[in-house]
Design a protein around this nucleic acid. Structure first.
Lengths: 222, 222
DNA sequence: CTAATAGTGTCTTTTAGACAGTATGCC
DNA sequence: GGCATACTGTCTAAAAGACACTATTAG
C-alpha cells in the first residue's frame, strides 16, 4: 500500500534551562516575540530549520546561541510532546530538552531572560508548565544516580557545594558524612592539588575538586 | 523578529515491539511495503496523520492496530530521533516508542510479522538498529525498579515466571529467595485465591498472582 | 520411595543513615 | 580561646546476596 502524503506537523525544540538561583532551581524564560501569546514568558525554543540544522541537537545549540547567547552547555533530550491541540495554530511536535547551567552564568540584567523558580514558574503558554514539571522529575530521578547535578556547578567546586546542589536537586536533606563516603567510594572526584579556597564565612579553607569524568552513572544512590 | 516558515520535516512514529520468545527478548519487524528499503524488515511505524491522529500516542495505537492487528497494549515513549540524514528522502523526525507484549500474543504464522532476537536483529534500515539498542537499554534500566517487565507476561502468572522474565530483561541471574522477599515487601502482587496451576513438568502446583497495580515504580532494585 | 519444582530460613556482606567527635584557621 | 565551617569515626539498621533447607505431589 502506498501511503499518501499528509500535511506535515510543525516541529520545534523547547529547552528547559535550569540554573540555581537564590538557593533553589530556576528556569530561564523568554518573552515570546510573536503571537500567539506574544510577550508572555515561555520556554526558550524555536522551529527546526531544515535548511541549516543537521539534527535536533544542532537546532538546540543554534537556538541557545541565538536566543540566550549561550554556547557549549550540558543538555539532554527530555521527551517529545506531539498533539493536534498543544498549539492553537496547528498540529505541533515539540522535542523538549533540559539544559543545566551553573549559577550566575546567565545573569545578564540587560538581557530579556527571566529566571523563575522552577517549581512555581507562573502560568505559561502551551504545555510549558507540564514540560517543566517533567524536566524536574527527570532531573530528580537521574540526579541521585549520576553526576548530572554537578553540571549546575562551575568546573571547580567544594564538597559542600556539591552536597548542596544534590540537596537542591533532590529536594531532601542528605547526610554529609554518608555523602562524602559515597563520593569517595565511587571515585568521582579529582582533588585539585595544593589549591584551597576560603569562603567568606568559613574559617578553615576547603579542598577543591573537579569531576574525574564529565559524566558518570552509577547504581548506588548518592 | 518574525520567523519565516521553513520547509517542515516529515514526522513518523516507530515502535520497538518486544515480546519473549524462545527464552529471550525478540523484536517484531515488518517488511517495508515501499521504497526506500522496500521488502526489508524494519520497525513497525508510520507517518503521523495530522487529519486523524489527535496525538503521537493515538498514531501509535492506530498503527499498531492497522499494521500488526494489536489493540490495547503497553507502550511508552522512548526517544525522538531527528536529523537531516536518518532518512535518505528528507529531514526526518521519528518519535520512537517501545511496546511490550506477552509471549505468543503475536504469533500469527500467516501474518507478515517477523520475530528476531532483540540483541541481534540483523541489519536494519535507517537508524533502526540504534533505536532497538536504546530500547533494550531503557527497558533494562527501568526494569529493575518497576513492574514494567510484568507486561511481558499474561495477566496471571507464577512467581517463577515473574522471576524468569526479570532475568531475561536484566540479562542476569537473580536469587530466587531474595526476589520473593523483595516482591513480598514491596507488596506488588495479589494472590489469586484458591487457584493453583500445575505445569507439565512440575510436581507441586504453584500459586498464581496478578499485579496489584497496573504499574509500580520503586526505589529498591528487584 | 524419587524426581522435580515450589517455597522458606538463616547467615554474611554491603550499604545507608544518624550523629558525635575532631581539625583548622581567622578573629 | 571561641567560633564557624571542614572533615572523620563509629554505631546501628536496612537491604542484598548466597545457599542450604523444607514442602508438595505425580508417578
Amino acid at each position: 500500500m502506498i501511503e499518501t502524503e499528509f500535511r506535515r506537523p510543525v516541529v520545534t525544540v523547547d529547552i528547559v534551562m535550569l540554573t540555581p538561583c537564590r538557593g533553589e532551581l530556576c528556569v530561564a524564560l523568554l518573552p515570546r516575540p510573536n503571537e500567539p501569546f506574544a510577550d508572555q514568558p515561555a520556554l526558550i525554543g524555536g522551529y527546526i530549520h531544515t535548511d541549516e540544522d543537521l539534527s535536533a541537537e544542532s537546532a538546540v545549540r543554534r537556538i541557545l546561541k541565538a536566543k540566550a547567547g549561550i554556547g557549549d552547555i550540558f543538555f539532554e533530550q527530555l521527551q517529545t510532546f506531539a498533539s493536534a491541540t498543544r498549539d492553537p495554530r496547528d498540529w505541533s511536535v515539540s522535542i523538549a530538552y533540559f539544559a543545566l547551567l551553573p549559577e550566575g552564568w546567565l545573569e545578564d540584567p540587560e538581557g530579556p531572560l527571566l529566571l523563575r523558580p522552577a517549581t512555581s514558574p507562573g502560568q505559561l503558554p502551551f504545555d510549558h508548565n507540564e514540560i517543566i514539571a517533567i524536566a524536574l522529575e527527570r532531573l530528580r530521578n537521574k540526579g541521585a544516580y549520576s553526576t548530572i547535578p554537578a553540571r549546575l556547578l562551575p568546573e571547580v567546586f567544594t564538597m559542600t557545594e556539591l552536597l548542596a546542589i544534590y540537596q537542591t536537586v533532590m529536594g531532601e536533606r542528605l547526610d554529609q558524612s554518608a555523602f562524602r563516603r559515597k563520593v569517595r567510594e565511587l571515585d568521582l572526584l579529582e582533588e585539585i592539588e595544593g589549591e584551597k579556597r576560603r569562603t567568606e564565612s568559613a574559617r578553615r579553607p576547603t579542598t577543591l575538586y573537579r569531576l574525574k569524568r564529565p559524566m558518570s552513572v552509577f547504581d548506588r544512590r548518592l
